[in-house]
Design a binder for these strands. Structure first.
Lengths: 252, 252
DNA sequence: CCTGAAATCAACAAAAATCAACAAAAACAT
DNA sequence: ATGTTTTTGTTGATTTTTGTTGATTTCAGG
């Protein structure tokens, strides 16, 4: 192990990338020395090397959040667009977390004079930029998982603002137990939104009706008769008892 | 994998889109080289390409206020990159509103384990997606102008969290009066951030030293000796009295 | 549908980076 | 000190990348 090893690793990771020559000058040694010292580092996979330069192999981020956004992208976009048939200019709406809601937010940029309250920083950021909207971000500390907050203050704000629609989602639709999510705080947030809205819109793409790897177990609050269910494929027979009292909207 | 790959991905994702020629000039290589280097990136689907330009296929964020971001975007990117020399993994940082800060947030996605507190929903959303970060959104009601909050609660949160750096900006640098902004609430927020941080980083691109159409008139709080000034061109003589006690970092 | 401008592609020569081998320098143990 | 081992710098052959040129394609407007 060379005496330059630590320095090199540090510099490369710090800068993201650096040419062999720059590094040689920085450490005042020859380029050949750099190459020699770097070889075992590369072999051990601690840094990566390309022709002409060394690059940090620290993954340049692909937020887990975004990768989920791309799953069933088309279905989610279709659902988001059909949401525009329900939500009109000037409506007030509470929006929960999740990739479905993120797409919904994108679609809702077409609407004006919305009153929006959400615990998702992404949704808040997206819709706050539309002139005429009144957007409230509920909560302070954001979890990196999805950029959402479930602070006490988040609930206080949700409960302070009454809206026309609550836009909710779920991780899985179970034939017996209904709409499920992974965490209790999500149920609590959904409950708060549902209780402070006139109507609820549940948005789930068809993949949510299929078995999942990671099985959620917590039940979303009961929907009221006349609430909406937005999805992208017709409801299969074995799920219809869950949706019989709801207005089901199937997007293209 | 070419040595330009990281930079290209970064710039493209930061700006959303850029022409091949602009990119060639930015990296001072020929357009042909850009095309060559970009081909595998496109094949792997990491960025998309259209005739004449490269476009990010990241989250379809195209905030209207990004239009302002397009002014002096290369300067702002350069400043954002040089910010990475100051901010290290694990640092705590308060970030204000504005297009400069938006670029800074994009750049800071390279860092891990940051503690971030900001009143900008865009900054919060951007950095909350990075695993390991601890992001707090200060404030509730967002103004559409820039997706930022200046609620009383925003100040309470800023004042509750002490950080290593406050990243501030300004709308105009006046030869006599120093760093100016348009609204009192921005001054108040800057003051709160400055008072709850160890060091302040003021980031202003060179255009801020030139006369503006819409003249701001409110003075940002005084910087402390040893605070940083980040900009992209050397400070002209007539401004040097403002920066003599500061650590001036000129990007590029 | 045509036309001119801009962008792209293919190919080749020039430039830069890499590698292997050897000699000089430094570090180490005896 | 002395010989041995390790590290370092230099050289020249080899490989990779880059810029340039000119032909081809794409795009926008008439």
């Amino acid at each position: 192990m060379s005496k330059y090893e630590i320095q090199i690793r540090e510099i490369v990771n710090m800068q993201g990338s650096i040419t062999v020559l720059e590094l040689a000058r920085a450490l005042s040694v020859s380029d050949q020395t750099i190459r020699r010292v770097v070889r075992p580092l590369v072999e051990r996979g601690e840094i990566a090397k390309v022709h002409g330069a060394l690059v940090s192999n620290r993954s340049p981020i692909d937020p887990p959040f975004m990768s989920r956004m791309s799953q069933n992208k088309l279905a989610k976009i279709a659902i988001a667009r059909s949401l525009l048939d329900l939500i009109k200019d000037g409506d007030r709406i509470a929006i929960d977390t999740g990739s479905t809601s993120a797409f919904a937010a994108q679609a809702l940029r077409e609407r004006r004079y919305l009153t929006v309250v959400t615990n998702s920083a992404f949704v808040a950021s997206t819709l706050s930029m539309i002139p005429g909207n009144n957007v409230s971000m509920a909560g302070t500390q954001l979890r990196h998982h999805d950029g959402a907050s479930f602070d006490r203050s988040a609930f206080e704000i949700i409960e302070r603002i009454h809206v026309d629609y609550a836009l909710l989602s779920a991780s899985l639709v179970d034939e017996r137990k209904g709409f499920l999510v992974h965490e209790q705080c999500e149920v609590d947030m959904a409950t708060a939104m549902l209780e402070n809205s006139s109507k609820t819109i549940m948005a789930v793409d068809h993949s949510k009706f299929l078995p999942q790897n990671r099985k959620p177990s917590l039940k979303q609050p009961e929907l009221k008769p006349g609430d909406y269910l937005l999805t992208d494929k017709p409801i299969l027979r074995q799920f219809q008892h869950l949706t019989s009292s709801l207005d089901v909207v199937v997007a293209e």
